[in-house]
Amino acid sequence: MRTKLLFTAALIFLGTCFVTNAQNDTRLGAMVAYGTEIENVGIGVNAEIPVMEKLNISPGFIYYFPKDEYGVSLNWWEINGNANYYFVENQSLNFYGIAGLNYTHVKFDFDESPFGDSSMETSDGRFGVNLGAGANFEIGSGITPFAEVKYVIIDGSQLVIGAGVKFSI
């Protein structure tokens, strides 16, 4: 199930990049992120698709590594649909503001439930809002390192700090 979800998300991102905009400014990226609520590291993919001067649409997906503590297994992932507005652009460094929507899915597996069952599982998904900022470091090639920080406003809000590379496609 998880593999199908990741594969579907990747196809959506690639399809969006190729269908929406055939310009050279479209980028596809990979990142490492840290979430303060889950207190764990995750990996993700994102895209950056120009729609207007200084404005890009940036879909993204982050999967946090599973976490096991005190007999509870936690699985957490998020899908983001952001708008990046570039307010400072120069030859080596481009700063942008982030605003968008977030869907976070959390699944708990308990080794022993309080009702005597051998195990119990529950999951929840919530919609939220992303606010943040990021920077692209232009190094003069088709590869662009970047860093982002965003706050996800949702029940169980968290700060997400991420860094990675974007590839021009």
Rank of each mutant, 00 (worst) to 15 (best):
Q91S: 14
I169K: 05
I98G: 02
M1N: 13
S119W: 14
N46G: 12
I98W: 02
A33G: 06
G164N: 10
G142W: 11
T36V: 06
D111K: 10
Y64P: 00
D25I: 02
L131P: 03
F137H: 05
F95H: 01
Y70I: 03
G97C: 05
P145D: 01
D117E: 14
T104R: 15
T144W: 04
G100K: 06
T144V: 15
A22R: 15
D117G: 12
T20H: 01
V88G: 00
K107F: 09
L28C: 02
I153C: 08
T3R: 08
G116H: 05
F95V: 09
R126T: 15
V51T: 13
Y151K: 02
D155Y: 08
F7A: 15
G81N: 05
L55F: 14
G44S: 03
L101E: 01
E112R: 11
I79N: 00
G15F: 02
I43S: 03
F137V: 15
G140S: 03
W76L: 07
P114K: 02
G156C: 01
G140H: 02
G60Y: 06
N75F: 10
G35F: 08
Y85V: 07
S92G: 11
N84S: 08
T144H: 09
F7G: 07
F87I: 03
A22T: 15
L5P: 00
G125I: 05
E39L: 07
V129Q: 03
N90Y: 07
N46R: 15
K150Y: 11
S141Y: 03
E89K: 13
A163L: 12
G116F: 09
F13E: 15
I98A: 02
L14H: 02
I154G: 06
S73E: 14
S123H: 10
Y86D: 03
E48T: 11
T36M: 07
T26S: 08
N90V: 07
A135F: 06
S58C: 12
N75G: 04
N56A: 12
N84G: 02
Y151A: 00
Y86K: 06
N102A: 13
N75I: 10
N102M: 04
N46T: 11
N84R: 14
G60A: 11
Y63A: 06
N56H: 14
I12A: 12
F61E: 00
N75A: 10
Y63Q: 08
S141N: 08
F61Y: 13
S157Y: 12
I169Q: 07
S92C: 07
D111C: 00
L6E: 12
N80M: 09
